[in-house]
């Protein structure tokens, strides 16, 4: 792993506030000068998160659709995605490396695996919470099972589904900080190279928090725009 770490360029400690930097302190001046070095890892971090959440959502959604009509599938799917969720990330990267090799794809696969459980469970909970009367009325008025699903059940499950995606997104932003181990980059890379340098650690930390917060807000905003009926007095 050493050759990888050597490529990281944020080891340059020259510049303003020399003293502060020598003592691994928190140096706003240094951060200001070097913030540009964090853009690429940040973008990569964002890519990892978005790709993993989208892939996790698509797979979990497909699984939920299968399990919705075949209830016996719920337990095995919950079990299998639950196992994935409990494997320590380091171990999962270790398992994947010989198969998929070093790089972005490996990182995404691991992060996607972590998303499945929470998104799957929330989709199922959302579908289960649709009022029985709405489903009965829909069927009784002549909707086919697919029409009931598309026109009634899924729209009404959106709040829970979005909640699941939001949790998954926030979690993924955090977990993606470990993706550098699989060679996928992200904000974990600059962090690990200089983990004693406070300026570096704080910068990475703040960027992670900001990324998580911005993505969460975007999802919340999208939900509000998409669901006018949730805004009215109930």
């Amino acid at each position: 792993m050493l050759p990888l770490l050597a490529q990281v360029k944020i080891t340059d400690r020259n510049g303003a506030g020399q003293n502060c930097v020598q003592q691994d302190g928190f140096c706003p001046g240094w951060i200001k000068d070097h913030i540009g070095d964090y853009v690429d890892p940040l973008v990569r971090h964002l890519e990892l998160t978005v790709v993993s959440v989208v892939a996790g959502f698509l797979i979990a959604f497909a699984l939920a659709m299968l399990a919705h009509r075949r209830r016996w599938l719920v337990a095995p799917i919950t079990g299998a995605t639950g196992v994935m969720y409990t494997i320590p990330s380091l171990a999962l990267f270790g398992i994947l490396l010989p198969i998929t090799g070093f790089g972005f794809v490996t990182g995404c696969i691991a992060l996607t695996a972590y998303n499945l459980l929470v998104i799957f469970r929330n989709i199922m909970a959302g579908l289960d919470n649709v009022p029985e009367a709405a489903k009965d009325a829909a069927t009784g008025m002549g909707m086919t099972p697919n029409q009931v699903l598309r026109q009634v059940e899924l729209p009404l499950a959106i709040p829970e589904i979005v909640a699941g995606v939001r949790v998954a997104t926030t979690t993924t932003v955090g977990l993606a900080a470990l993706a550098f181990i699989a060679g996928a980059g992200g904000l974990g890379e600059p962090l690990i190279v200089n983990q004693n340098f406070k300026s570096n650690v704080v910068t990475v930390g703040v960027l992670c928090v900001l990324l998580a917060a911005v993505l969460d807000l975007l999802l919340l905003l999208a939900e509000r725009l998409a669901l006018p009926w949730r805004r009215v007095a109930r």
């Binding site: 709405a134 009325a137 829909a138 009404l156």
Partner: peptide, 15 residues
């Protein structure tokens, strides 16, 4: 069912 009106106690309007 599309030819038969259907109203139930819980109404079942789509929120």
């Amino acid at each position: 069912r599309r030819e038969i009106g259907y109203a139930i106690q819980q109404i079942g309007l789509f929120p």
